[in-house]
């Protein structure tokens, strides 16, 4: 009798990655559709604005990167998101408590159109684009991530900031039900970050709503987060609930926690070392060796002019 033995070739070796991924996407789409149908058209604000879980976007030609992408698994399972936990593995496990639907953004301060905006209304008129950016964490590790989002400038302009708007302050949602670690005192909640108006309006600055072509997973800062690729990762604030145009330089949460260690600018700079970490080199997640850290994380051409004449050692 012929007994069939299972093949010892892994299915991942038979199916090419692209096809394999497509299948996954297809399944997700089907699941997404059936869930949406069963809930009577229920969709996240980002999905409501763009339709379905796989987002519709164009690839921004000038914002591509000739580097190997950090795998989806690593991007979504190695996260600094202290609102959940100070462990980097925990957010992926815990982030189901975050409910990015519905989501409102409070726009305040020096602008002509302040108000409480539903996220989908903010997103609808905008076209999404995919941009591949390096992400450099102050702790000395880095990734290359395909974000999906829109230039922050195009969103901010709609609020018509006045001439008093010298800085933009961002706040993460404060809700201890959704962010259990906000009950603790690891940082002074809610998380606050800020940019100068010039930094905010720079074409590189992205408001991200997705990664790897999909809606942002909760642990990556759903439904909407900042991506400022030439600054250390902690500047790229997650799950934004408030935007305020202000005249004075905001004090960020990390500046409050330790002003000696964290400054307002936090530009990636291999020549300015941090009290805890030499910033000369970095470890790309997935690699064993160390890479040289690039000035402004490799975006000097686009942003160096913002800091001309500034002492970057003092304004760290």
């Amino acid at each position: 009798m012929l007994i069939k033995r299972p093949s010892d070739i892994a299915s991942s070796e038979i199916t090419s990655e692209a096809v394999y991924k497509d299948r996954r996407r297809f399944l997700q789409q089907m699941i997404g559709l059936s869930v949406a149908a069963s809930l009577g058209g229920y969709l996240s604000p980002v999905q409501a604005a763009y339709g379905g879980k796989p987002l519709t976007y164009s690839k921004a030609k000038e914002f591509q990167l000739d580097e190997k992408l950090t795998p989806y698994k690593d991007v979504t399972s190695y996260n600094n998101f202290y609102e959940f936990s100070t462990s980097k593995q925990a957010p992926a496990r815990m982030a189901h408590t975050l409910k990015p639907t519905p989501w409102n953004i409070s726009v305040e301060g020096a602008c002509a159109k302040p108000g409480n905006y539903a996220l989908e209304d903010l997103l609808k008129p905008q076209a999404l684009e995919e941009r591949i950016y390096r992400l450099r964490c102050v702790e000395g590790w880095s990734m290359a991530i395909p974000w999906v989002g829109l230039p922050l400038a195009s969103m901010l302009k709609r609020f018509e900031p006045t001439s008093d708007a010298k800085y933009v302050l961002f706040e993460t949602l404060y809700d201890t039900e959704q962010f259990p670690n906000q009950r603790g005192r690891v940082l002074d909640w809610p998380y606050v970050e800020g940019l100068t108006i010039a930094e905010a309006m720079n074409p590189l600055t992205l408001m991200a709503v997705g990664l790897y072509g999909e809606v942002l997973p909760n642990q990556n800062g759903a439904p909407m987060r900042l991506v400022v690729p030439w600054k250390y990762g902690f500047k790229s604030i997650k799950s934004i609930a408030k935007i305020r145009f202000v005249e004075k330089m905001p004090t960020s949460s990390w500046m409050k926690a330790s002003s000696r260690e964290y400054g307002f600018y936090a530009n990636v700079n291999p020549q300015v070392s941090h009290p805890r970490w030499s910033q000369k080199r970095e470890r790309r997640i997935g690699e064993w060796g160390r890479r040289e850290t690039l000035m402004f994380n490799g975006y000097a051409e686009q942003v160096a002019h913002l800091y001309s004449g500034m002492d970057l050692k003092k304004n760290f």
Binding site: K73, D74, S77, Y78, W141, R283, I285, G286, W288
Partner: peptide
């Protein structure tokens, strides 16, 4: 050996 130390095994 079994890649069980997460995304940053060195850390």
């Amino acid at each position: 050996l079994n890649d069980r130390l997460g995304s940053n095994p060195i850390e």
